[in-house]
Design a protein around this nucleic acid. Structure first.
Length: 498
RNA sequence: GGCCCCUUCGUCUAUCGGUUAGGACAAAAGAUUCUCAAUCUUUAAAGAGGGGUUCGACUCCCCUAGGGGCUACCA
């Protein structure tokens, strides 16, 4: 039988690390088994829904670079893949369950339910146990229920959870799990009074109708799984295989959330992360692949993924390690690739020309400088966002640093000015395309002046780039241009000897 | 409170009864070096506690502790 798995997000927020992790593992599992990965939009919560989140979902996965085989935007044999477009299906199935005696209409008012809930909260210190719905409507005579319905009374449909006995299921990761039915949520709502299904109903109906073979979702869902199994049986269906994935936690050990830092993929993208790095890091959360290796391509992960390699314990999201991955992937880019990646950030910083839509539109000269700078900055970047501040001096006249910035340790302003003048005098005779030759010439000059090579370089560096920390100097001067650099040097020299 | 899941260096992990408990990130030290990086070398760092089972437990079982999740007409 063909493996079919799905990612079933609810468009009530932007895509975040947790969701992407679930999607990725489903995707990897499908690929490793030669199966299908589908996307289903679970938009049954009308109060929190927004179109913007649907758009964000598509944008995010296009950027990440792994996509579903079937889904609302790409179609497929189980269409439609949007639950709001399957509206009639759920009502029909809920009513079927009622007619089979497996579910019932509940007429309880919301305020009575709220009071029930509040009372249960108050009794927390007590014996415990009396949680959830009290099943008052479970034994309403079906004939009476029809009468009240016909009279226009509002109702929800609830699933009958067996009062005793146990429910068992096997989790592919956690093994056999058995629950007392008394501990299962008492008669959960399947169909809300607005006619929309709850997650539980829609999920089961769709997974069955879409022939989903494996349900892989976060471990926070595990406690509703017995209820889902009961529902499958009530319908007379065979449940799929379950696999509950370890959770992703923040540094403090609680479920990863905004207060732990960036969690939405929007933010990672904006902050200069590479999709490859994110994918690789997220794939390694709670899962190992091959010993002694950290870097994998998506294709390799697809081939190596095994459910048995998943870890049972939840994992802490480590931004520092992700940062390292990001640097690794940046270094793997060719100069041309990296230039293209960095360009939008340079345009946003105003270093490079941009069109009216904000997209980069560099002229040939700017493009050449960016490309030429790639070998200088590549191994210094951790994020794409690091490029603009690091490359600013290539496009703009740097602000004149304070005089002390120019002065090497143990020297004074007069000496620094002298070294600057020597550098300015030497530079025009150097072939800036030949770095070793430039360096040799400067070393000789330093010796002649009785100065340390570093002490000759530092004032020059600060003058040419505006900072004591910069990409390699001779290459930088070459990119900026000799004339401009001589002017920068002269400006600095005047600052030191007024 | 109840129910469920989990527990190897600070973090992510390897180990599927017998290892000097391995690797990666971070940290520290060193090498290299025109600054900063990158790179290379080295160091420090772990089986929550207590009982069993076994010739032998990180590994299997039980208890305790700790962490997490769920407990909605949200997913």
């Amino acid at each position: 039988m063909e493996v079919r798995v799905r990612y079933a997000p609810s468009p009530t927020g932007n895509q975040h690390i947790g969701g992407v992790r679930t999607a990725l593992i489903n995707y990897l599992f499908a690929r490793s088994q030669g199966g299908k990965f589908l996307l289903r939009l679970e938009d049954t919560d009308r109060t929190r829904y927004s179109d913007e989140y649907v758009k964000n979902l598509y944008d995010t996965f296009k950027w990440l670079g792994f996509y579903w085989d079937e889904g609302p935007d790409v179609g497929g044999p189980s269409a439609p893949y949007i639950q709001s477009e399957r509206f009639a299906l759920y009502k029909e199935h809920a009513e079927k369950l009622v007619s089979m005696g497996q579910a019932y209409y509940c007429f309880c008012a919301e305020d009575r339910l709220a009071k029930l809930h509040a009372d249960a909260q108050d009794e927390e210190a007590g014996e415990g146990g009396s949680y959830g719905y009290d099943r008052r409507c479970r034994n309403v005579d079906p004939a009476e229920a029809s009468r009240r319905l016909a009279a226009g009374e509002k109702a929800v449909i609830r699933l009958k959870i067996p009062l005793d006995g146990t429910t068992k299921f096997r989790d592919a990761l956690l093994g056999d799990i058995e629950w007392k039915n008394a501990d299962v949520s008492p008669d959960p709502v399947l169909l809300k009074s607005d006619g929309f299904p709850t997650y539980h109903l829609a999920n089961i109906v769709d997974d069955h109708l879409m022939h989903i073979t494996h349900v892989m979702r976060a471990q926070e869902w595990i406690s509703s799984t017995p209820m889902h199994v009961i529902m499958y049986r009530a319908f007379g269906w065979t449940p799929p295989e379950f696999c509950h994935l370890p959770m992703v936690l923040g540094q403090d050990g609680s479920k990863l959330s905004k207060r732990h830092g960036a969690t939405s993929l929007n933010e990672f993208r904006k902050n200069g992360y590479l999709p490859e790095a994110l994918i690789n890091y997220v794939a390694h959360l709670g899962c190992s692949y091959e010993e002694g290796r950290e870097i994998f391509t998506l294709k390799e992960l697809e081939g190596l993924f095994r459910v048995e390699k998943l870890n049972k314990a939840s994992a802490v999201f480590d931004y520092t390690k992700l940062e390292w991955y990001n640097g690794q992937y940046i270094r793997m880019k060719t100069d041309a690739e990296l230039a293209a990646l960095v360009m939008p950030f340079l345009a946003a910083a105003g270093l490079v020309a941009a069109g009216s839509d904000g997209a980069p539109a560099p002229g040939p000269a700017q493009a050449a400088v960016v490309l030429g700078a790639m070998p200088l900055v590549k191994e210094r970047l951790k994020f794409l966002t690091d490029a603009a501040p690091m490359m600013r001096y290539l496009f703009e006249e740097p602000a004149l640093p304070a005089p002390e910035e120019f002065i090497p340790k143990k020297l004074d302003a007069a000496r620094a000015a002298e070294l600057l003048a020597a550098a300015a005098a030497l530079l025009p005779s150097c072939d800036l395309a030949d770095v070793p030759a430039c360096e040799a010439a400067f070393r000789a000059e330093a010796e002649r002046l009785g100065a340390k090579f570093g002490d000759l370089m530092m004032p020059l560096r600060v003058a040419a780039t505006g900072s004591r920390v910069s990409p390699p100097l001779f290459e930088s001067i070459h990119l900026v241009g000799l004339e401009k650099c001589l002017a920068r040097i002269e400006r600095a020299r005047k600052l030191l000897v007024p």
